[in-house]
Each structure stands twice: as structure tokens, then as C-alpha cells.
């Protein structure tokens, strides 16, 4: 995988998410492009770099989403989304062999799973951080359950948005430089030839 292409795509997707904002928002359901990028890489890049790439995307996501502290001041906390994206990517890796990638709905399903795991991990990390540092959780004064519902709705939104995003990403696949290897394993049928 060409890391330069990946980094540019991640920054562009983050900028588009930050700028387009409410365009893909219906009520409290908000869809984002960034999860589709991670899932696209998770399904196409070599397994050993997927988690690392996801962590890089998580870092960018953390930089673009400052937490508002109790006194109203913003603070960028690098880390919660790094771990959340790593967990999300780790959840998608086992799906590589199960998904029929030519079907756009399978990609959307992978994005939904990724976003759901990411949301769960981010909520857990935020609660852990508030316990350790004694601060408020980012969704205060709403409850963790309501935030979970909002995040899961967002995961559904991400899945819907993944349909057009994957269409674009699939067409740009040659410039990403993914290695395609066909592994031949010896077996009875092959030995008989």
C-alpha cells in the first residue's frame, strides 16, 4: 500500500467530514466518510499493516474532534479514537474471508460493524478517562446509553454513506498500490495433476 495515498485520502476524508458536517445528518444520525476509508484499507491492504493504518486514522479523527470540557473549553485528547479505530479494524479483519467484496452491501455491512465496534470502544475509553482524570465524559450531561444509541445510529449512517464512497474508492484502487498475492496450497487435487 502506498502510505502517501493513504494519508492524503485520510486527511481529505477528515476535512470533508468536518466541512460537509450536517449534510449527511438526519436528526441525531450523522454519517461520516472516514470509517469507509478504514474499512476499505482493512479489506484490501496486508493484514499486518491494517491495525497500524487504523490507529493513524484514529489519531487524525482525535485531532479533528476536540472534547468540550466542563468549563466550555475545548481539548484535543489523542488516544481514545486511536484505540477505538484499532479495535474496529481488528473486528473487520476476520471478515475479509467471509465477505463477497463485489457486492456493495457487504462493504456497507463491514462499515457498520467497524463503526459499531469503534463507537463502543470510544465510549468505554471516554468513561475510563473520566474515571481516571475525574473530568466529565464528552457527552455530559446526556447519559452513556443515549450516546450509545446516537453512535449506533451513526454507524448505520456510515454504512449507508459507504455505498457511494466505496464506489469511488474501488475505482481508485490501482493508485493505492495494494499487493495482490494468490497463494497456492498443495492438495490432493493439485497433486493428481
Amino acid at each position: 500500500m502506498h502510505w502517501s495515498v493513504f494519508i492524503i485520502a485520510v486527511l481529505l476524508a477528515s476535512a470533508l467530514d468536518a466541512g460537509l458536517g450536517g449534510l449527511f445528518e438526519v436528526g441525531s444520525l450523522r454519517a461520516e466518510i472516514l470509517p469507509s476509508i478504514v474499512v476499505f484499507v482493512a479489506l484490501s491492504a496486508p493484514k499486518k499493516i491494517v491495525v497500524r493504518a487504523a490507529m493513524l486514522v484514529g489519531l487524525v479523527a482525535d485531532l479533528f474532534a476536540p472534547v468540550i470540557l466542563g468549563d466550555g473549553t475545548p481539548l484535543v485528547v489523542p488516544g481514545p479514537r486511536v484505540l477505538a479505530f484499532a479495535l474496529g479494524a481488528a473486528a473487520v479483519i476476520p471478515l475479509r474471508g467471509l465477505l463477497y467484496r463485489q457486492n456493495p452491501l457487504s462493504n456497507s455491512a463491514a462499515v457498520a460493524i467497524f463503526s459499531a465496534f469503534t463507537a463502543l470502544a470510544w465510549i468505554v475509553m471516554s468513561i475510563l478517562r473520566s474515571v481516571v482524570t475525574g473530568g466529565d465524559v464528552p457527552w455530559w450531561p446526556a447519559t452513556g446509553t443515549s450516546e450509545l444509541v446516537v453512535q449506533f445510529l451513526g454507524a448505520l449512517g456510515d454504512a449507508v454513506l459507504a455505498l457511494p464512497v466505496f464506489w469511488v474508492l474501488t475505482r481508485t484502487k490501482p493508485i493505492w498500490g495494494f499487493e495482490t498475492k494468490t497463494r497456492l496450497t498443495p492438495g490432493v487435487a493439485r497433486e493428481g495433476l
Binding site: P74, L128, T133
Partner: peptide, 17 residues
């Protein structure tokens, strides 16, 4: 990432923003 995520506000505020 885990360690940085749990750092207190006074440590993060001077540089992360």
C-alpha cells in the same frame, strides 16, 4: 495511545490543541 488517552488535562492542554 492508552497512556496518552488517560493523561490529565494539564498535561495535554499545552500542546494537543
Amino acid at each position: 495511545a492508552f497512556l496518552v488517552a488517560l493523561l490529565p488535562v494539564r498535561v495535554l492542554r499545552p500542546w494537543t490543541n
